[in-house]
Simulated scan of single mutants.
Amino acid sequence: MKVLAAMSGGVDSAVAAARAVEAGHEVVGVHLALSRMPGTLRTGSRGCCTVEDSNDAWRACDKLGIPYYVWDFSERFKEDVVDDFIAEYEAGRTPNPCMRCNERIKFAALLEKALALGFDAVCTGHYAKVIRDTEGNPELHRAADWAKDQSYVLGVLTGEQLEHCIFPLAETPSKAEVRAEAEARGLSVASKPDSHDICFIPDGDTRGWLAERIDMTKGEIVDATGAPLGEHEGAHAFTVGQRKGLKLGTPAADGKPRFVLEIRPKENKVIVGPEALLAVDELRGIRISWAGLPIADAAAGIEFDCMVQVRAHGDPVDARARVETQEDGSAVLVATLIEPMRGVAPGQTMVIYQGTRVLGQATIDSARSTAWDPSLVS
């Protein structure tokens, strides 16, 4: 099989490519140049996809004896990930750019180009696995090592995309084993640290980065009843669950800290309250996609049991979910949580599971708590 190995410059993608070569596939390595922003060209940048990463990817391919290319996806990355990130914050949501990158760049755009060039599949270093059902349809499942499982960030993949995905690290019991294998294979990235932070904000200062791109105007900070407490420099700089940086002059009656409960960008208002009100028990999600064929109940609009996860390494919680069709014909995924979940922000992605299987995902449009009525704040 002709396989395109996506080479991030890290140890996982290098070992995944090595295993694809060992399996007898015709492998070609490619590194995606995603940003032309100056910060990502600097030594020590804390994200992924830097020039240093490109060099590490080239060295890995050279060691494996496979061709290596760099594809410039920077324009599409700006449009589909960076601009989307800004737009989501402007709408009062807290996006996950890595989810959007996986959805629109690392699989949609990359796979589209790979298939056009005659490749059969794309290979990546993600910790997840594809399993076939009794009729041969692909399903996305958690990896063997739950501590490193990345099925959450792949929840945006469709069944058609899963048909052309290879995840060689699926059954690997630990990251330590991957590093040991890389060392044994003589790959220079064996001890390279994992990437972190948002790649296009290399210094990690998300608030400062947004302030340069979104108009920040002063507005009110109010409590859960609508009573004014202070002033902010720009609602877009806040996120649900935030505690620090509120700079409230009036302490709470009980002396306990307050947290951001809701952001209303149209009103330029930030609502804060006690930690207890961060616990939500209903999530409503838009932009639904299914990782393979949807289960029969979901397709029929019948409520079904599942587990919901809202962070890459968060704990899944039991829930009942259903798909509702709105008056405009759009679909909304509604998940009622058996146990409330704390600090969920609109814009996050909820991925739903049954056992180890990823059923699909949706972007959270609202997160509700039955303990608080947002309409109290006019």
Rank of each mutant, 00 (worst) to 15 (best):
A291M: 10
E339I: 08
T356P: 10
P294L: 05
D305F: 08
V334K: 06
R322P: 07
E324L: 15
G301L: 08
R322E: 11
L293S: 15
G329Q: 08
T336F: 12
G301Y: 08
Y353H: 04
G329D: 08
E324I: 14
A335N: 02
D315C: 12
V323L: 06
R342C: 10
E303F: 08
G347I: 03
I352C: 01
R311W: 11
R342Q: 11
I352H: 00
H313P: 09
D315M: 14
P346K: 06
G343V: 07
V332T: 13
R287C: 08
I352N: 00
L278E: 01
R320S: 14
E303C: 12
A319E: 02
A345V: 07
D315Y: 14
S289K: 09
F304K: 05
R320Y: 11
V332F: 11
G301E: 09
D305L: 09
A300H: 09
V317S: 06
Q354V: 09
Q354W: 06
T356R: 13
S330W: 08
I338H: 15
P346I: 01
V358L: 04
A319M: 06
A312G: 15
T356C: 13
C306K: 02
D318M: 13
A291Q: 06
L359K: 00
G292Q: 05
G355T: 02
G355I: 02
A321E: 05
P346F: 05
V332I: 14
A279I: 04
V351I: 09
L277D: 03
A321G: 11
E324R: 15
T349A: 10
G314I: 04
T336Y: 11
E324H: 13
G347Y: 00
E327F: 14
G301H: 07
G329M: 11
Q348Y: 10
A291S: 13
M307N: 12
P316Q: 04
L283T: 06
I288G: 00
M341F: 05
V358A: 03
P340C: 04
A345R: 02
M350N: 02
L278K: 01
V351P: 00
E282G: 07
D297Q: 12
R322K: 15
V280Y: 00
V334R: 04
I352Y: 01
A291C: 13
P340L: 03
Y353M: 01
Q326G: 10
A345P: 05
G347C: 03
V358W: 04
P346M: 04
D315E: 13
P294I: 06
L283S: 04
W290R: 05
M350L: 08
A279G: 06
D281N: 07
E324S: 14
V317R: 06
T349N: 12
R322N: 11
T356I: 15
A321D: 05
P316S: 07
D328M: 07
A296Y: 14
P346C: 07
L283P: 03
Q354M: 07
R357S: 01
A296I: 14
L337H: 00
I288L: 03
E282V: 10
V351L: 04
Q326M: 15
